[in-house]
Nucleic acid binder design. Structure first.
Lengths: 139, 139
DNA sequence: CAAGCAGATTAGAATTATTCTAAAAGGTGA
DNA sequence: TCACCTTTTAGAATAATTCTAATCTGCTTG
């Protein structure tokens, strides 16, 4: 019998290897939580709690290591909007953020319609890395 | 003899009282470092080192307390651009930031010329707090 | 498909930034 | 000056993150 390979089921091992990362059990478990389903924002603690709920044992240190590796590999983007904690965003397309200061929630919004005009030129000897627009709101 | 009161010498005690803060020795010493001279960006540790260099003894805890109080009183603005540490900006006019990621330096740029158009409306039940534009560059 | 090795994981200690605590000191109105 | 309430302080505590050193595991090779 021929086995059906559904392209609808994302193969995280392949995806990790493509990013130059060995597909270990914990990295695959974390990738599953992060990348199946839509775009998300996680903190290290939050992701750790979530992966534990899937009955995979992953240490908090590994969650931190993995988040940093995923970010370095271009699978995640780190977002710093509040003192003390980092958020990691699975949406790698060009976009900006709403930050609800009163409850620490972060939401994407597409940059399609957003225009930032009149920015000064970067200081000499520097090259542009990216432009972040953070819309801070309160409840 | 009539004493001359020069308006060119900023009276930090008065300024603090106007902001609802008692002008204690350490608050005045910190205000002097922060507000005499042009706009600046400081971290708690950096400010602590600077004030010690003026031969005033101010504990690190007081530096933290004071930065938070000054921020709450509208004398400073907190800027969060990098994980782990907060910057405090003495420039309270409307402006944005360059952040030189490679060496952690922060620079203002005026928002006169900058236009941010096409922002989506804030989520229901929230009101706009402010819009930050951070231009990240690397050496 | 066993062996070996480089890379990954882990628990717990360490580090860093910041806040808290409780006691001592200081600013201020009467 | 006194009394009172606020501030300051040293050091302990907390929170987020990184480090360490030992153990484990993918993966390549024979």
């Amino acid at each position: 019998m021929v086995r059906m390979i559904s392209s609808a089921i994302p193969d995280f091992a392949v995806r990790l290897r493509a990013a130059g990362l060995r597909p270990t059990r914990q990295r695959v478990a974390l990738a599953r939580v992060l990348f199946e389903g839509g775009d998300r924002h996680v903190t290290a603690e939050g992701l750790h709690a979530e992966v534990k709920a899937t009955s995979h044992r992953v240490s908090l240190a590994t969650v931190y290591n993995t988040l940093n590796q995923f970010r370095d590999a271009g699978l995640l983007r780190e977002v710093v909007v509040a003192p003390g904690r980092s958020y990691f965003d699975t949406n790698m397309s060009h976009h900006h953020h709403f930050f609800i200061e009163t409850d620490g929630e972060l939401h994407d919004f597409p940059s399609d319609k957003v225009t930032v005009a009149g920015l000064p030129t970067p200081p000499k000897g520097t090259k542009l890395s990216r432009v972040d627009v953070i819309v801070r709101v309160r409840r």
